[in-house]
Design a binder for these strands. Structure first.
Lengths: 123, 123
DNA sequence: CAGGATCCTGCCGGATACTG
DNA sequence: CAGTATCCGGCAGGATCCTG
């Protein structure tokens, strides 16, 4: 698994730094669901069947590395693993909520704009 | 992070939708500087010499497509082009500022965490 | 000065199969 | 259930040269 390399922190660009934390394709939505309560691996899979186990693991591990989420393994049978926001991770909460609200409010508009734009060029 | 697919808005995932708008590698910092005042192409190049003209054009055009920035061409010699936030783009302001502050506040911590993590694994 | 045109590459994101 | 182990294609991101 020679995956996640992810640049140090994108020096001299604080906005970029923040983006390296939340910028994975699924991280936003994962964080959003973690705001509410701790979640299990399988819960995420049910919420978003499109995420493969591999990607889910990858994104969660990166969030864990960055100190955003905590991974708690319960030594039971069958195994259970719960992911929760750390105190550090909770400092991101206002931003995640803003992003959710903004996306909900303007998603349709964006979709229109992008469709128009895609139609104009290719001829 | 990677922009997803260019056209679709990542259905059913408002946080992801927002990320498709601001998630380009340089978009965050571009938006941040646009918050203050309109900027010229060359200004950005001076602020961040690491951005190639090609990438700068690309990212600005995407922001333009999404209705976030306005591109004003002044028919002068030498040519002058100014980029400014649209009213729509200004709705992102609180989030950009939050991202900047968060990045400034926790960049060092993240850098440490990632360095530690990178040192532990590779053998 | 502000870009277009071209070509290239590396990692991101994914598919699939297997396991403690 | 909650992951690994491999393999891989595509596109974001970049380098370089050229132009209105």
């Amino acid at each position: 698994m020679r995956r996640s390399k992810l640049v140090p922190t994108l020096e001299g660009c604080p906005v970029g730094t923040t983006l390296t934390v939340i910028g994975g394709k699924w991280k936003g939505i994962l964080l959003y669901h973690l705001l509410e309560e701790p979640r299990r691996f399988g819960e995420f899979r049910k919420l978003y069947p499109a995420i493969t186990p591999f990607m889910l693991t990858l994104q969660l591990r990166e969030l864990e590395r960055d100190g955003i989420v905590h991974r708690e393994v319960y030594p039971e049978v069958p195994p259970r693993v719960e992911y929760s926001l750390t105190e550090f991770g909770k400092t991101l909460a206002p931003m995640i909520l803003f992003m959710k609200n903004w996306g909900e409010a303007h998603g349709d508009r964006l979709k229109r704009l992008r469709t128009q734009h895609a139609e104009k060029k290719p001829e």
